[in-house]
Nucleic acid binder design. Structure first.
Lengths: 99, 99
DNA sequence: GTTATAGGCAACCCGCTACTTGCCTGTCAA
DNA sequence: TTGACAGGCAAGTAGCGGGTTGCCTATAAC
């Protein structure tokens, strides 16, 4: 009967490039689109176009994992990991050693 | 440079039916494939075929979220939420009120 | 034995999604 | 004002993934 809330969240986390973007934004918060593109290429070897990264950021923003702040012609992207809390609230993590 | 470990985990969580299967197995652990099929139909209104559910369970097992135990012609499925811990370890959750 | 049950395997179809391409808008510097 | 820079929008393409179909194996009940 439950409505499976948070579909956007899992959809956002489902792509490897988007997960790398989260890693990158956590390492250095508040980057612009061009900065993210450059650092993804430099540090992770990802050769994605600007438009591809832009679409990924839109998905992350819709999931609430990224918030944006416009300033002039720049748009800064900030991470917000709080939506991840709903995952461990939905399926409480067992105590014990990892597998 | 990080290798994005846990791709199987996020792939498994990316599908709504698989998330519902996790819900169902947490509610009643150790079900067989046919039990899961029946209860998904009854309680969640999902009309998926047996083969579809079987493939979903294989994905969940590959992600380490479900372990199986054979006994005669039955195969019991057990949840293991410990892989979820890697998510909050990768992206620590901020303190503060939810959005 | 025979039959029914529980599950597995492989091929195929289709819709979604990531990515590209091309062009457009808005902002700042020279 | 003109150019460079940061970003947005929309249509088209290709591949992947979820679902189905059909047939098969193995265990248990009769």
């Amino acid at each position: 009967m439950s409505v499976d809330s948070g579909a956007d969240l899992f959809k956002a986390l489902g792509d490897a490039t988007r997960r790398t973007i989260l890693d990158e934004l956590i390492d250095r918060d508040g980057q612009t689109l061009f900065e993210i593109c450059g650092r993804l290429t430099m540090r992770y070897g990802l050769a994605s176009s600007r438009q591809a990264i832009s679409q990924h950021l839109a998905v992350l923003e819709q999931a609430g994992l990224v918030h944006t702040r416009r300033q002039g012609r720049y748009k800064f992207h900030h991470v917000d990991t709080r939506p991840l809390r709903s995952i461990v609230e939905r399926w409480p993590i067992d105590r014990g050693d990892p597998p």
